Computed example of a mutant assay.
Amino acid sequence: MMELLRQWLTGVTCAAIIVALADSLMAGGTVRKIGRLAGGLLLLAAVVKPVLEVDLAVLSSSSIHLEAEAVPAAEEAGLDMMKSIIGEETGAYILDKAEELGISCQEVQVTCAVEENGVPYPASVVMRGDMTQEEQALLSRWIEADLAIPAERQTYESGGEEE
Results as ranks from 00 to 15, higher is better:
19 V>D: 01
88 E>A: 12
64 I>M: 11
98 A>W: 02
32 R>S: 13
91 G>P: 00
54 V>S: 09
36 R>N: 11
88 E>F: 14
91 G>N: 04
86 I>Y: 00
21 L>I: 07
94 I>V: 06
105 C>V: 13
47 V>H: 09
19 V>W: 01
50 P>H: 01
48 V>S: 06
45 A>V: 10
52 L>W: 14
107 E>I: 05
30 T>Y: 11
6 R>L: 14
6 R>T: 09
111 T>Q: 10
72 P>L: 00
35 G>S: 07
104 S>C: 08
11 G>M: 10
106 Q>T: 13
44 L>V: 04
46 A>Y: 05
15 A>N: 03
8 W>F: 10
95 L>S: 08
89 E>R: 14
79 L>P: 04
32 R>G: 10
58 V>D: 14
108 V>A: 04
78 G>I: 01
84 S>P: 04
25 L>C: 03
66 L>H: 06
98 A>T: 05
8 W>E: 13
87 G>D: 00
113 A>C: 02
23 D>P: 15
20 A>Y: 08
28 G>K: 08
22 A>S: 04
8 W>Y: 10
90 T>N: 00
37 L>Y: 10
97 K>L: 15
90 T>V: 07
80 D>V: 02
67 E>L: 10
105 C>T: 10
84 S>E: 01
27 A>F: 07
78 G>R: 05
76 E>F: 03
29 G>F: 00
55 D>H: 02
19 V>E: 02
56 L>N: 07
85 I>T: 07
20 A>H: 00
14 C>Q: 14
42 L>D: 08
61 S>N: 03
78 G>S: 00
97 K>E: 14
